[in-house]
Measured scan of single mutants.
Amino acid sequence: HAATELTPEQAAALKPYDRIVITGRFNAIGDAVSAVSRRADEEGAASFYVVDTSEFGNSGNWRVVADVYKA
């Protein structure tokens, strides 16, 4: 099962156990969220919340930071 994305309210009520950072070329924010979901799932997380997204220069590469939560 894939890790689910939390709302800001849900994330605020929970304590993350880790923070992950992924970088890559994403065509849309949805693609980045899917990549975070896969990584969170690999780490055994039940859910995640994207904290920050930023573009690296003009290369089209993105850096996505997310907190991950157990259950």
Rank of each mutant, 00 (worst) to 15 (best):
F48M: 02
A40G: 03
S59V: 09
A35R: 04
W62N: 01
R25C: 09
A71W: 14
Y49N: 03
V65I: 12
G30E: 14
D67P: 00
A32Y: 06
V36D: 01
Y17F: 13
P8C: 14
E9A: 12
A46N: 12
A13K: 14
E55Y: 14
W62F: 11
L14N: 08
L6W: 02
A28L: 08
P16D: 01
K15P: 04
G44D: 04
R39E: 04
D67C: 10
A32K: 04
A35N: 03
Y17A: 01
S47Y: 15
T23C: 14
G44N: 05
V36T: 04
R38F: 07
G60M: 05
D18V: 09
R39T: 05
P16R: 05
A28T: 15
V50Q: 02
F26Y: 07
V36C: 07
D67T: 06
W62D: 00
A12N: 11
E9H: 08
G57N: 08
V65D: 01
A45D: 01
V50G: 01
A13C: 14
E42I: 10
F26M: 03
G57M: 08
L6S: 01
R25Q: 11
V21I: 12
G24T: 04
R25T: 09
D18E: 08
A66Y: 06
T23E: 12
G44T: 03
T53V: 15
D41L: 15
Y49Q: 02
G30M: 11
G57L: 07
D31E: 12
A66S: 02
A2P: 11
G24S: 03
Y49L: 08
K15T: 13
N61Q: 14
A46V: 12
P8A: 15
A3W: 04
R25V: 10
F56L: 14
V68D: 01
A11T: 04
R19L: 04
E5Y: 07
T53F: 15
A35Q: 06
Y49A: 05
R39N: 03
R39C: 10
G57Y: 06
A13M: 13
G24I: 10
G44L: 03
A28V: 09
T53N: 06
T7D: 06
A28D: 15
D41C: 15
A35S: 05
R63K: 10
V33S: 04
V51I: 12
G24A: 06
A32R: 04
H1F: 09
E43F: 14
V68R: 00
E5Q: 13
I22R: 00
E5C: 13
A32T: 04
W62I: 09
P16W: 05
V51H: 03
D67S: 04
S34A: 15
F56Y: 13
N27I: 10
D31R: 03
V51T: 06
G44F: 04
A12E: 08
I20E: 00
S37R: 15
A28P: 04
K15F: 09
E42W: 09
R25G: 04
V36A: 07
I29H: 09
D18P: 01
E43G: 08
K15L: 10
D67V: 08
Y49T: 03
A66F: 15
N61D: 13
D52R: 07
E43V: 15
S59F: 09
P16Y: 04
S34N: 13
T53Y: 15
S59Y: 08
E55K: 10
T53R: 08
A2T: 13
